[in-house]
Amino acid sequence: NKFNKELGWATWEIFNLPNLNGVQVKAFIDSLRDDPSQSANLLAEAKKLNDAQA
């Protein structure tokens, strides 16, 4: 379904953000699993944090 596809894509993108540490990645992935409907918002937050830590 739509959420599974978005969840998978967001998970892959978060895993590939180079400036996040393992704890941050795990926290974002756990949040995605808790509420897949928020995948776009969580991915945006992860990208912002990644950019801030560059």
Score class of each variant (00 low, 15 high):
G22D: 12
T11K: 10
F3R: 07
T11M: 15
N16Q: 10
E13Q: 13
Q24F: 02
W12K: 06
F28S: 00
L17D: 00
N21T: 14
E6T: 08
R33Q: 10
L32N: 00
K48T: 05
A46I: 02
L42Q: 02
L49C: 06
Q53Y: 07
Q53T: 04
E13I: 15
L7K: 03
F3V: 10
N16W: 06
G8A: 15
V25W: 03
F28T: 00
E6P: 06
F28W: 02
G8Q: 15
L42V: 14
Q53M: 13
N41G: 07
A10V: 15
L32W: 04
A46K: 00
I14T: 02
A27R: 12
A46P: 00
F15M: 15
F3G: 09
D34H: 14
E6S: 10
D35C: 09
Q53R: 04
D35W: 06
T11I: 15
E6H: 08
Q53I: 09
W12L: 07
E6M: 10
N1R: 05
E45Y: 11
W12S: 06
L49Q: 04
L20G: 00
P36F: 05
L32R: 00
Q38R: 12
N50I: 02
D34K: 14
E6G: 07
N50Q: 02
P18N: 05
N21I: 05
G8W: 15
L49M: 08
G22T: 11
G8N: 13
N16R: 07
R33S: 05
F28L: 04
N50D: 03
Q24W: 03
V23S: 13
F15E: 09
F28Y: 05
S39H: 11
N4D: 14
F15V: 08
T11E: 12
K47V: 07
K2R: 12
P36T: 03
S39Q: 07
G8K: 14
L43N: 02
N41L: 12
Q38I: 06
R33K: 10
I29A: 03
V23K: 12
L20Y: 00
G8L: 15
D35R: 06
N1G: 12
N4A: 09
K47C: 06
N19D: 03
F28A: 00
F28D: 00
T11V: 15
L7M: 09
N4E: 14
K48W: 07
T11F: 15
D35N: 12
A44P: 01
T11A: 15
T11P: 04
A46C: 03
N21L: 11
S37M: 06
L42K: 06
E6A: 07
A27M: 13
K47P: 01
D35A: 05
D35L: 06
V25E: 01
R33D: 03
K26I: 07
E45G: 03
I29H: 02
A40P: 05
A52E: 11
V23T: 10
W9H: 08
S31P: 01
